[in-house]
């Protein structure tokens, strides 16, 4: 299938993803499959925030992972700057990896418990071969810590010694240190208390203004997505049911599922 080259920074064409639930013995061919995504198309431009909402099992995280190159899709393609990520050579892929970063829901789970915060934040620089000078990494780490509003002496602590909000700030610093173009926030504030949640959301917005990054903001919380996103994608059972600006989708929803979702959330 020929796919037209796209003008967008990152886009996915007709992405489908099926997980194999069960295989035939010996032959190894899939016996049962679960379709997590079905022909989903998605695009994001520079400096834009796109929110993905939906309930658990709607495929929003899977879509995020495929767009970020953490998973492969069974059908369809993901293009970064008009290059299919499957056709990228090693160097191109490294550039892609650098420019698309993740922030996950459980910040502690995505950090090595025996690494100091300094090493956690500096790790992407080493693995992406952007910088190998220890002093330089160290100064960059400290600069990042300051940017996300953390104290310098946190650098020598372990993740277990930090609170949830602090850990999420560290995760943001780790994503930011390579100066990415896109950050995929997968339920980045869901595990935080409401008073801390607001701080992190404001921090993300400030950083976006400063660095002109694009966010793919995945969340089940309509209020949070509405606050963060310029454009919203509503997902249900592996496909997109509605897209539009925040006002279009949440104030005047057209699809019955979106209506149900808005009605059942307790936001004003």
């Amino acid at each position: 299938m020929a796919v037209q080259p796209c003008r967008h920074l990152l886009c996915g064409h007709d992405i489908s993803k099926a997980f194999v639930v069960e295989r035939w013995p010996i032959i190894g061919k899939p016996r049962k499959q679960f379709t997590a995504l079905e022909k989903v198309s998605f695009h994001i431009d520079e400096g834009e925030t796109v929110g993905i909402v939906g309930e658990s099992g709607s495929g929003k995280s899977t879509l995020g992972e495929i767009l970020g190159g953490l998973r492969t899709c069974t059908e369809g393609s993901v293009h970064y700057k008009a290059v299919n990520i499957r056709d990228m050579n090693r160097n191109q892929f490294r550039v892609f990896r650098r420019n698309v970063q993740f922030i996950f829901q459980d910040p502690k789970g995505s950090m090595h418990p025996y690494f100091r915060i300094r090493d956690i934040i500096g790790e992407p620089l080493k693995t992406l071969k952007l910088c190998s000078d220890r002093e330089e990494i160290s100064s960059l780490v400290e600069e990042m810590l300051a940017q996300v509003g953390l104290d310098k002496d946190i650098a020598d602590k372990y993740p277990g010694q930090l609170s949830g909000g602090q850990c999420q700030r560290v995760a943001i610093a780790r994503a930011l240190i390579v100066n990415p173009q896109i950050i995929i926030c997968d339920e980045a504030v869901s595990a935080l208390d409401v008073s801390v949640q607001a701080q992190i959301l404001n921090l993300l917005k400030d950083l976006q203004r400063k660095h002109r990054m694009a966010y793919i903001f995945i969340s089940h919380d309509i209020g949070v997505v509405n606050y963060m996103a310029d454009r919203i994608v509503v997902m249900n059972r592996g496909s997109i049911v509605e897209t539009g600006t925040a006002e279009q989708v949440f104030i005047t929803p057209t699809h019955p599922y979106t209506k149900k979702l808005v009605a059942s959330s307790f936001v004003n």
């Binding site: 607001a198 701080q199 959301l201 509405n226 606050y227 936001v267």
Partner: peptide, 25 residues
């Protein structure tokens, strides 16, 4: 008061900053 304000509402204006409670628990 702060708790009521920090929850992002649907009729928040674009570009408006969310009220926050400084510090941590």
């Amino acid at each position: 008061r702060a708790l009521i304000k920090v929850i992002p509402s649907l009729n928040i204006k674009k570009g408006e900053r969310l009220a926050e409670i400084p510090g941590q628990l």
